[in-house]
Write a protein that binds this DNA or RNA. Structure first.
Length: 639
RNA sequence: GCCGGAGUGGCGGAACAGGCAGACGCGCACGACUCAAAAUCGUGUACCUUCGGGUAUGUGGGUUCGAUUCCCACCUUCGGCACCA
């Protein structure tokens, strides 16, 4: 997938796959077991306590009469704090002792069971083993509540020198790096990697542990209480409960209604449409009600593009032949804000559809391009900040082409940029220049070699003010029109390359340079050939479609500029015979020389020694080295 | 704290693969046209200078004949994630 690394990483983090072990701890004096997830089974000997999330289901069964009040108060307070508060409030560790104990399955040690809100119910098992010596959070917790902090991992180097001494080294912070196991019974001397495996395997033999994989993915409510969304195909039957709508009755369609309004009861507007809601149970045929919640917007945004290529197919999702021709999407341009929701879930949908054989590809978008955001006054545009630029006003004043061109010209598309009102003025002026240039030469049917000669034939011009363009009577020579042809090839080359490289701002500047060159040409020669103008219209078309189409017609074409071929270019024709080379002395510019392409090195160097103020800077000095980078530069090193 | 992007004139930005820093545009100044203005067109526009030149791409080093570009360390700033065991 040709996607930005950043997006791939954000998705990987969002999924949060984590390889580790599940370890079971018996609760002392009960039949209960607390299971924890850990990526560091090698630190199991260092566990000095257990922590459950406040909402963990075992909490009420573990508390003892004398801890009940304190624990219940803590749970209440923790649950009252919303998840938002939990993040913004200080990370100071809080907790309460339940009064219960668990047994460490590897060494039989008694571990006090605490509850604390730094353990999250919806990740892993909602319970952790506290290993303060080798986990920062556990270290903070153990420090706050004066729990023991033993060392069970020693740094590799220290262990190699003297493992006894390394095992006895005190800990003043959590050492989270991998190392060598110490104070761990028969496992001493193993590396962390070996230990994770060995400890888990030992536990597995006793039925107390296993390898497992955990994900950060969480549940996400898929339903919305509104009319506008795909109905969820479930029927609620009094007798049978929730029953899926049979496949032959799919899809469930929204009812056509004049209006839909909130019910005021907190239910979806669909709940008030009785002829739709009331149905029969597909299983028992008795009275039943349809599910009235609908799907969120992103349910459809995940796969709509598959349907777009074959929207009227009544038999299947889409015709496989059409899918082969069109999909997956070649290029997807969108904002980074969709990195983990829309773009990730779209991938899930497509992988599912691939797995059930509905489509033949398993990634939706081959290439992803994230465009930046446009800021105004240093902030995202928003109504509440009052810094919104209305596109309608801009279109009204300058036209859609000017607005579009300015948005492209503002800066590299992948970066954020700052809106500047006067910037669009420049684009408007540019388009006006293009308009005048083409219109004052459009109906002259001038060929490149006869540009000057044909000028006189242009008696009747396009009408209006444009007709009065000043024309200097001079003849264009054959050599000069070769220069014009070069400009044309250069423009086609630069616009094409920059367009393909997505450097749209520089593609626009290449267009401007081309127009400047054509205007200069007109100033000197009085006219310009039709091919040059046609190239301009075609190159301009993707950037300023309206004006380009109009100009194309004025250049005498009946078909649209969008159906004609994109201008081709010959890189050879862009090359100039005479190139200007900078000449440096000790890396400092001292002059320039004009040389023929492919001139022999000694000739170039000889010319270089004469150029500009080079002479002054090399006389009386010893030339140590002369560097000639053909087509680029000459550098004379003196001492 | 971790991860990622960005620092270049008054402003937005350009510079292919290490080769004339500032393309293109905005702004500004002056000029042409005009009774005047607008529009348009032209010229100029990094900084300092004893007019020889010198200094400049966030800062400090390094590599190189030559660095905006490559390497090391740092500063600023904008995003994203944030107790994930």
């Amino acid at each position: 997938m040709d996607w930005p690394e950043k997006v791939k990483k954000m998705q990987a983090d969002w999924i949060g796959r984590s390889y580790g072990s599940e370890i079971a701890f018996h609760v002392e004096g009960a039949n209960d077991t607390i299971t924890v997830f850990t990526t560091r089974a090698d630190t199991l000997f260092g566990a000095t306590y257990m922590v459950l999330a406040p909402e963990h289901p075992l909490v009420p069964r573990i508390i003892t009469p004398d801890t009940r009040a304190a624990v219940e108060e803590y749970v209440e307070r923790a649950l009252a704090r919303s998840s938002v508060d939990r993040m913004t409030l200080t990370k100071e560790k809080t907790g309460a002792f339940t009064g219960g104990y668990a047994i460490n399955p590897i060494n039989g040690r008694r571990l006090p069971i605490w509850i604390a809100d730094y353990v999250l119910m919806d990740y892993g098992t909602g319970a952790v083993m506290g290993v303060p010596g080798h986990d920062e959070r556990d270290f903070e917790f153990a420090t706050a509540f004066r729990l023991p902090i033993p060392r069970v991992i020693a740094p590799v180097e220290a262990a190699r020198r003297d493992i006894e001494k390394a095992a006895a080294m005190p800990l003043d912070h959590a050492e989270t790096d991998y190392g060598v196991m110490v104070n761990s019974g028969g496992f001493d001397g193993m590396t962390s990697e070996e230990g994770k495996k060995a400890v888990t395997e030992k536990l597995a033999k006793d039925g107390m542990g296993r390898f497992t994989v955990n994900y950060k993915m969480r549940d996400w409510v898929f339903s919305r209480q509104r009319y506008w969304g795909e109905p969820i195909p479930i029927v609620h039957c009094e007798k049978c409960g929730e029953v899926g709508v049979p496949e032959e009755d799919l899809p469930v369609m929204l009812p056509r209604v004049e209006r839909y309004e909130p019910t005021g009861t907190g239910e979806s507007p669909l709940a008030a449409i009785s002829e739709w809601v009331n149905t029969t149970c597909p299983k028992c045929g008795g009275p039943a009600k349809r599910e009235t919640n609908t799907m969120p917007q992103w349910a459809g945004s995940c796969w709509y593009f598959i349907r777009y290529i074959d929207p009227n197919n009544g038999e299947q999702l889409c015709d496989p032949a059409k899918a082969d021709a069109w999909l997956p999407v070649d290029l997807y341009v969108g904002g980074i804000e969709h990195a983990v929701l829309h773009l990730l879930y779209s991938r899930f949908y497509v992988k599912f559809l691939y797995d059930i054989g509905a489509i033949g590809f398993d990634e939706p978008f081959a290439r992803l391009f994230n465009q930046g955001m446009v800021y105004k006054d240093g902030a995202k545009m928003s109504k509440s900040k009052g810094n919104v630029v209305s596109p309608d006003e801009m279109v009204e004043r300058y036209g859609a082409d000017s607005l579009r061109l300015y948005e492209l010209f503002m800066g590299p598309p992948e970066l954020d940029s700052e809106w500047n009102d006067s910037g669009i003025e420049g684009m408007y002026r540019f388009l006006n220049r293009v308009w005048r240039l083409v219109n004052s030469h459009a109906d002259r049917r001038v060929s490149a070699t006869a540009a000057g000669a044909a000028r006189r034939a242009s008696g009747q011009a396009t009408g209006g003010a444009d007709a009065a363009a000043p024309v200097a009577p001079r003849r264009a020579t054959g050599r000069a029109s070769a220069a014009l042809e070069r400009e044309r090839h250069r423009a086609a080359m630069e616009v094409t390359q920059r367009l393909e490289a997505f450097k749209l701002n520089t593609a626009v500047s290449a267009l401007m340079s081309y127009v400047n060159a054509l205007n200069d040409w007109v100033d000197e020669n009085g006219s310009v050939d039709t091919a040059s103008l046609e190239t301009l219209a075609r190159l301009l078309a993707p950037f300023a479609p309206h004006i380009a189409e109009e100009l194309w017609q004025r250049l005498g074409h009946d078909e649209s500029v969008f159906v004609v071929k994109w201008p081709e270019y010959d890189p050879e024709k862009v090359q100039e015979d005479l190139v200007t080379l900078p000449v440096q002395v000790n890396g400092k510019l001292r002059g320039t020389i004009q040389v023929h392409r492919g001139a022999p090195e000694d000739e170039v160097l000889a010319a270089a020694r004469e150029a500009g103020t080079v002479v002054r800077h090399i006389t009386g000095k010893q030339i140590v080295k002369e560097i000639y980078a053909p087509g680029k530069i000459v550098n004379i090193v003196v001492r």
